[in-house]
Design a protein around this nucleic acid. Structure first.
Length: 305
DNA sequence: CGCCTTTGACCGGCGC
DNA sequence: GCGCCGGTCAAAGGCG
């Protein structure tokens, strides 16, 4: 990792958040991914108002150290945005969050190739073909950039404008709720999505997107009402991130309840149908859209001391 | 018939 | 080496 990236991470309040969370008395329903230190937190005031839920999700561009890793330009503002290097409210941080197509298109294409090779070698070994160890090592799976968020919802699979095919379900250790694995149904699109319900708060759904779509949301193509309201950025010719793309005028709050800067933090609540709707009686509401799905959120703001 | 979910088996990584 | 665990495969069946 470059010095610049280190700088970004060191200045990322989430990391501090992570390291001292025990002393702060916060509960983390899910903690760190070995490859991507996503952090989730349920702030104390969540328990004071069960109708609200705080989302804190962010994406790091970390991947397991590998010579195959694409060198990322740490001067790229998108990388800074992804790492949450302050100024989160500053103009919405570009046309997609947290990755811009520009910053990741090359990464995506290279890693897609790796993934294809890997799955191929796996298939071949299954039908009895011998693969050399060197080749297997070379084809070692690379993890794509991931983005996760939590939503208070009765339904697991939230409408995000893309079509997904379920390819697996596993029991989660220490949890009564299974984890479901989905793949984007679009041809040659390697984006995956993982959905599980938090065992600490069963009303909370944890969704993890991995990879970057190489196509537009079908909802956009279909020209749905929601799509018609979508930000112009979604119509750009570049591949779109797997995770929600926020319109340019999207504003993210600059601080959480500890006064720390966060790249994205908001409350959200869902209807039974999985569509987001404005939570009632919560001030500072702001509407925005996910690809193919309208979402209304009220912003994270400081609780009264 | 095509697309989807379900589900048990399998694979690879990792810790002991 | 062994067992655990997360992730994936693929056959079978369901559904419109």
């Amino acid at each position: 990792m470059s010095n610049d990236q280190n700088k970004i991470i060191n200045s990322n309040p989430f990391f501090e958040f992570h390291h001292d969370h025990e002393s702060e008395g916060f509960a983390f329903p899910i903690v760190t991914d070995h490859y991507n230190p996503f952090m989730y937190n349920l702030p104390q005031h969540h328990h004071q108002n069960p109708t609200e839920f705080q989302f804190q999700g962010y994406n790091t561009l970390d991947a397991p150290p590998s010579p195959c890793n694409t060198t990322r330009n740490s001067n790229d503002p998108a990388v800074e945005a992804a790492a949450g290097s302050g100024g989160a409210g500053g103009g919405g941080g570009g046309d997609s969050f947290p990755l811009t197509p520009n910053s990741s298109a090359s990464i995506s294409s290279q890693e897609a190739g790796v993934e294809e090779d890997s799955s191929k070698s796996k298939k071949e070994s299954r039908i009895g073909l011998v693969c050399s160890k060197a080749k297997e090592k070379e084809g070692k799976k690379q993890r794509q950039a991931r983005f996760a968020f939590m939503t208070k919802s009765e339904v697991e699979n939230l409408e995000d404008g893309y079509r997904w095919r379920k390819y697996g379900q596993k029991a989660v250790k220490n949890s009564p709720f299974p984890r479901s694995y989905y793949r984007c149904t679009s041809q040659k699109c390697i984006v995956k999505k993982r959905i599980e319900r938090s065992y600490q708060d069963p009303t909370v759904v944890i969704t993890t997107y991995e990879g970057q779509h190489n196509h537009h949301s079908p909802a956009v193509i279909r020209g749905s009402v929601a799509a018609a309201m979508l930000a112009p950025s979604l119509f750009s010719p570049q591949p779109t991130p797997a995770f929600p793309t926020f319109p340019q005028d999207m504003f993210f709050p600059s601080t959480n309840e500890r006064g720390q800067t966060s790249p994205a933090a908001f409350y959200t609540q869902l209807t039974d149908s999985g569509r987001h709707h404005p939570p009632p009686d919560i001030p500072d509401q702001y509407s925005f859209l996910m690809p193919g799905a309208a979402m209304t959120s009220s912003f994270f703001h400081k609780p009264e001391p």
